[in-house]
């Protein structure tokens, strides 16, 4: 499939990733203590100050990356961080799943859709296994978008002009 034909798909996936990150960030920023408690559930071999720093900084990383992806502002850097964050989260949720830890992943606030924490569906969506699979898929999407943006930076702000001047450039040849 030629990259040119993927252009609308790139925008769609980039905006979807951005929206997802903003949603995840706002849920965490609403209650940092709950997010910190969720992090404790992963039983990671990290010192408490590191976990605190992650709980404080990660929601803002997600929010900034989400907004940048949505606005297509320095999208490659935001995508690189997004892929890194999802990859790290895959590892964390994967180890929790493998160890059978009874975690609440603390990722997304599903109450917006009327899915209550503690309900059967809420527990499934918040489970380590589901979080692991979701993070793997999102890592793949983010890495794919980053790769395309880095090799064919047509849609990023810094190269829009040159791409518009040469619409049949490298990107069209895929």
């Amino acid at each position: 499939m030629k990259t040119e034909t993927l252009h609308p798909l790139r925008i769609l996936f980039r905006c979807a990733l951005g929206a997802l990150l903003i949603w995840a960030a706002l849920g965490k920023l609403g209650n940092l203590q709950a997010f910190y408690n969720a992090l404790l559930g992963y039983q990671l071999p990290l010192a408490s100050p590191v976990l605190s720093a992650v709980a404080i900084g990660l929601p803002w990383m997600e929010l900034l990356c989400g907004l940048m992806l949505f606005a297509n502002f320095h999208a490659p850097a935001a995508l690189a961080w997004t892929a890194t964050l999802f990859a790290l989260f895959s590892i964390c949720s994967g180890q929790a799943w493998a160890r059978g830890l009874p975690i609440n992943c603390g990722c997304l606030n599903f109450s917006l859709f009327g899915i209550r924490q503690g309900s059967e569906l809420g527990n499934l969506l918040d489970s380590a296994g589901f979080a692991f699979i979701r993070a793997l898929v999102l890592t793949g999407v983010a890495a794919w978008l980053f790769r395309i943006d880095a090799v064919h930076p047509r849609s990023s702000k810094t190269t829009t002009d040159s791409s518009a001047a040469n619409p049949t450039g490298n990107e069209a040849r895929g």
Partner: peptide, 14 residues
């Protein structure tokens, strides 16, 4: 750019 995002997130978070 990635470093700048990290710094901005750390400052906003703090």
């Amino acid at each position: 750019e990635m470093r700048n995002i990290l710094l901005a997130a750390a400052l906003l978070g703090a």
